[in-house]
Design a protein around this nucleic acid. Structure first.
Lengths: 334, 334
DNA sequence: TTGTAAGCGTTATCAG
DNA sequence: CTGATAACGCTTACAA
């Protein structure tokens, strides 16, 4: 077992093929001119030696590493994982490679992540969680690194910002609750306080006021299944429990539904209407059949990667996507 | 907006600090000797310029990139996502960075993934899905790249192989079914045919035979929730439907349970015992309360990363981990 | 079309 | 402790 690394270099291939090492380089450079015969010799030599271009060295020369850094917290969460999958796939198709950095959701750790991106001279970074410090963002931009912020709130110019119509979606749910005959509605949120979560909350509460519905709002813990159960406990032990609850995410909604059914014996949607957001796979499972808004995961990833490939970009780029309502069975039909 | 990249280099820092560029390098090299005063000057200059060591160049010199390539298919799947999270976290703690390559499960695409790893001179690759071609494995090894295969079946020496006691676990479930008074048992598998899936199947069937239980086995589609529903349809419309079914994975089990309850009105565990494998988060959700085996995700990741950091390793390394039984409510108590 | 030579940003070696 | 200098493997003018 060789302790030290021993990759084969273009030099060796050149020797074997009996050509200069630039001929080797040219053979593996898309737009270069090299005689078919030479190319053939090089290919053969490379093949037999097991040569693979060193992207570290290439990146050093080209000032373009082909690396895109993905900054995420809670990767194991269904929505995050789905987005991650879509992003890596599209990046691969675009000839890029994904570097994954896990953050603990603190903005500071997002800063660390972006520094890693700079260390490896990533061509771009895509931030799915947390908000990087202004100074780091500027450093990235100044270094010529592109930045995509997904569902983040930020006023800086330079990065591409991809957001959803959160408030509008929340409004539609409120309408659906009203049609279903709900009298008292609730919004179940986590304490994460991200821009999109808060937009859903505000949109829902505003709409409820417009409809003249009694509305309650509670926030608890992380955006998780467990928090959903706790929120259900709190909502459903109220004196005047709501008969329609919009959960800020599907994970919360699943927890809410389970608790409502098991601890309170409520049947959904007959006695309680529930809606969620994200359309994670579990929302479609038989036990939940959750009416929810679908994060346009493929579209988000598509736009992000497409923007990364554009030659020149506007310093101020915003993309607003629509979350489509997926109607299942957790809300009574109007 | 600068079209071309413009990172600050050690050269510039050296100039600003009024020292040689080797002083700068030394300042950022852990074990190097540099006067506190010089170091201070360098740090300040670096800070103000926004300097970050170029890991591409460093990797080129050191022949050690700090990159570890993660090869995965179906990243969005709960168990995969959980393992991915654990791995990236441990890698980060170990000072490594994860590169993520999505495969489509074909062994060929795993080969592509490993070539990417070679391109970027990854220090190691960790394969979670599919089996790479023998020639590629040898190429990796020959290049001095380490390889970890998780839950894969392979006879080559060189890589670290991490596996579970699948057959034994299957046996324990069979025992539990027997204790619960099951007469006819079933094994619900996907058609993926991976080593661990097959080991569970064989272990279960063998144990059933030993217990003198009537046993049926079915395979269908991917290892997914939907397949679980289809498998339930097939099992539960049998003339002599089984009263205890072991599903090869939790995803299958969740689908199976939903179908059994909703389409056949069966109550679990009273009329039907169900067990799964993986202990994904959803297995603990109120609607499922699934008795299952927990993949020791943290342990797997821990062992993998620890092995990567070892100076010298045995050419033949195997780690066999125990999947612990998590007893919930989908099997009647003996 | 080809080879030669310079340079990308590092770190390691070796005098001072 | 410090500063030159030589790699590392690659691409790309430039000259042949």
């Amino acid at each position: 077992m060789a302790s030290k690394r021993d990759f084969v270099s273009a030099q060796q291939v050149a020797q074997r093929a009996g050509v200069s090492r630039s001929a080797v380089s040219r053979t593996f450079t898309p737009g270069a001119s090299v005689a078919p015969e030479t190319r053939q010799k090089v290919i053969e030599a490379a093949e037999s030696l097991g040569y693979h271009v060193n992207h570290l060295a290439r990146g050093l020369m080209l000032k373009e590493s082909g690396i895109v850094c993905l900054v995420v917290s809670e990767v194991a969460t269904p929505y995050r994982a789905a987005l991650l999958k879509a992003l890596t796939q599209k990046l691969q198709i675009a000839g890029k490679i994904a570097m994954l950095v896990n953050t603990d959701r603190s903005d500071e750790s997002v800063g660390h992540a972006l520094k890693q991106a700079i260390h490896y001279r990533a061509d771009a970074s895509i931030v799915l969680s947390g908000m990087p410090d202004r100074s780091i963002v500027e450093l990235c931009l100044r270094s010529g690194q592109r930045l995509v912020l997904i569902n983040r709130d930020d006023e800086l110019d330079g990065p591409l910002r991809i957001n959803l119509n959160d408030a509008e979606a929340a409004e539609r749910i409120c309408t659906a609750f009203a049609r279903a005959g709900c009298r008292r509605v609730g919004f179940a949120n986590s304490e994460a306080g991200t821009a999109s979560l808060m937009a859903r909350e505000e949109g829902f509460l505003a709409a409820a006021a417009r409809f003249g519905l009694e509305a309650y709002c509670m926030r608890y813990g992380a955006t998780s299944y467990q928090s959903g159960r706790v929120l259900a406990q709190r909502f459903l032990t109220m004196d005047n429990r709501p008969d329609g609850v919009f959960c800020a995410s599907d994970l919360l909604a699943c927890g809410f539904m389970d608790e409502a059914r098991m601890a309170f014996g409520l049947s959904i949607p007959e006695q309680l209407c529930i809606a969620g957001f994200d359309d994670i796979e579990q929302a479609s499972w038989g036990s939940y059949q959750l009416t929810t808004f679908a994060q346009p995961v493929e579209l988000i990833a598509g736009h992000a990667v497409e923007w990364l490939q554009m030659e020149d970009v506007d310093p101020i780029s915003n993309i607003k996507l629509q979350a489509e309502l997926v109607w299942r069975r957790s809300i009574r039909a109007g």
